[in-house]
């Protein structure tokens, strides 16, 4: 009987341990330290240059997956990121990078991507990759995308992740910003990350 009780206690303890691991900070968005791997990719920047994750070391880096034909979620999310970044002190705001990775590379050429991201600010960078590179990156962050049936004009819907991943200056995954997280929450967390990491 005591052995049985001990087993139950041990399993309860394990559950608690599982729930508790993380960075111990009370984030207003979702903390993902320890849940997801550090930033790593090799893609093409909207300027046409090849670019890797290590080129963004030293920057607080936000990564979002979307497409330029996206009717609603992508522009509102990017606008939210812009608003949050603008609340940071000048030098901190300049040090943030937002990577917009297109999941619709067929329609999103580099030029279109550049025009799209430039509209949100100098910190916004469009990234594009082939199928293999894109799959590798999305699989790494356990997200996916899919295409709907094209209509008469050849337009189609794309299902994609609504999450923004936030990496600290050393490239470690720290935060996930969901649709439901507002500008205030994001700005507060970015400021906290900027002052500590």
């Amino acid at each position: 009987m005591t052995l049985k009780r001990r087993r139950i206690l041990i399993s309860l303890g394990l559950c608690l341990l599982l729930a508790a691991c993380g960075d111990g900070i009370n984030w207003q968005t979702k903390g993902i330290a320890g849940l997801m791997p550090p930033l790593r990719f090799a893609l093409t920047e909207d300027s046409g240059n090849p670019v890797q994750a290590k080129d963004f070391r030293g920057h607080i880096t936000l990564m979002y997956f979307g497409y330029t034909h996206c009717p609603d979620i992508c522009p509102t999310t990017l606008a939210k990121l812009k608003a949050a970044i603008n609340r940071l002190p000048e030098s901190a705001a300049q040090n943030v990078r937002v990577l917009f990775v297109t999941v619709d590379p067929k329609r999103d050429g580099l030029e279109r991507l550049r025009a799209y991201t430039a509209a949100f600010g100098p910190q916004f960078v469009g990234l594009r990759g082939g199928d293999a590179e894109l799959t590798q990156l999305t699989k790494r962050y356990r997200i996916t995308y899919g295409y709907g049936k094209p209509d008469a004009n050849g337009d189609y819907e794309v299902s994609h992740s609504s999450a923004v991943f936030v990496f600290d200056r050393s490239g470690k995954a720290r935060l996930m910003v969901r649709d439901s997280d507002g500008v205030d929450a994001l700005a507060a967390d970015l400021e906290h990350l900027e002052s500590t990491a």
Binding site: Y147, G148, S162, M176
Partner: peptide, 13 residues
């Protein structure tokens, strides 16, 4: 279970 919206669905539904 908003994680499926967060991570994206396999096809639009």
């Amino acid at each position: 279970f908003d994680v499926y919206a967060v991570c994206g669905r396999a096809w639009p539904v």
